[in-house]
Design a protein around this nucleic acid. Sequence first.
DNA 1: GCCAACGTTGGC
DNA 2: GCCAACGTTGGC
Length: 152
Amino acid sequence: MRYWLMKSEPDTFSISDLFNRPLQTEHWDGVRNYQARNMMRDDMKQGDQVFFYHSNCDVPGIVGIMEVAKEGYADFTAFDPDDKHFDPKSSPDKPTWIMVDVRFVRQFSRTISLKELKQYPALADLALVRRGNRLSIMPVTAEQWAYILALE
DNA sequence: GCCAACGTTGGC
DNA sequence: GCCAACGTTGGC
């Protein structure tokens, strides 16, 4: 099993929104970055554990855990001309963009902030804390995962 | 709201 | 295939 971190702006979709979805499950649509797409398409497997990260907000940080509920399939929002993430180059026959379904696992008792995560030498290699990182989906090693869990 | 970092686009 | 221009991300 692998570990991941996925970012979302809480104004758009927060961990509470995920909690309140039917079956506490939602598709992770709108990713329009090839590196992130490839990870969802090739590497994310059912049952993989994922940190839910709130970005672009008062206290950016990890707020809880979800799991992969359904492996990569076509991101249908790319087919909808009225959707913010519409991409005319993507078609149902040959979808450019891929998404997975995620299911709520639990919310942390506190936000483990980016500021805090940056303080620990053990997490220096975490893509999230590396300079200029803008990937919205990134792998987390088993060691990093355990270390972060212990911070809660 | 600013701006650094970085990905993408398109002219050549 | 290079690279300047442009758009987006996301912390601050």
